[in-house]
Simulated assay, not measured.
Amino acid sequence: AGSFLLAMIRYLPATAMTSLTPLRWAPPMVRIVLAMVLAWLTVQAQPLQATLPQGGAFGWVVAAVGELMLGLAFGLAVMLPQAALHMGGWLIDIQAGASAAVLFNPAAQGETQSLLGTLLMLVGTVLFFTLDLHLDLY
């Protein structure tokens, strides 16, 4: 349970920062379940002799803050380039006049999303994993 909690804290920034992630369309319950599944898979991949923090409550707090910082570092390293791609696509949409399509999108629910920006962000995500850049990041 302790390893699961620490792994959940590690994946929390990547699933909670919805403005920078391709998961912005997903409801909060879907993002929570995704974080739990990733945490469970992480715990299953750990060796059987996984070490838990020592030192009582202070050790757990230090471990939780460390996991949160690690999750923030990995999350921002992936999400900031995606946000830059989305912003670039948004600027291209405005210049090309395609941003008017957002006004007629009934699925937007008050949130303006760029068509080309979303496409660039999703292509960037696919290339990130296809070119094995996630292994270089790790």
Rank of each mutant, 00 (worst) to 15 (best):
T125E: 09
G110C: 09
G97F: 03
A35G: 14
F74D: 10
L131K: 09
G56Q: 01
Q54V: 11
T130C: 00
A50K: 06
L20M: 15
F104Y: 15
R10K: 11
V37D: 11
D93Q: 02
T18R: 15
A77T: 10
L127K: 01
Q109G: 10
P28I: 11
Q44F: 02
L91C: 04
A108M: 13
I32P: 01
A57W: 00
A14T: 02
A45H: 04
F129W: 11
L120E: 07
V30Y: 07
M87G: 10
L133F: 13
Q46R: 07
G71W: 00
L127W: 12
L127D: 04
L34C: 07
M29I: 03
A35F: 04
G66R: 04
V65N: 05
A100F: 14
L23E: 05
V65S: 02
Q95T: 05
A83K: 09
L76C: 14
G89K: 00
S114L: 07
F129L: 11
P106N: 12
A100R: 14
L133A: 08
M79L: 13
V65E: 07
L41V: 07
A50E: 12
P27I: 04
A35Y: 05
G59P: 06
A45W: 00
L85N: 05
A14N: 00
I32L: 10
L41G: 00
D93G: 01
A14M: 13
V102R: 06
G75V: 14
I92K: 06
L131M: 13
M87E: 07
G75H: 04
M69S: 02
V78E: 08
L20K: 08
Q109R: 14
I94L: 06
I9T: 09
R10G: 06
G56F: 04
I94R: 12
T21V: 03
A45L: 01
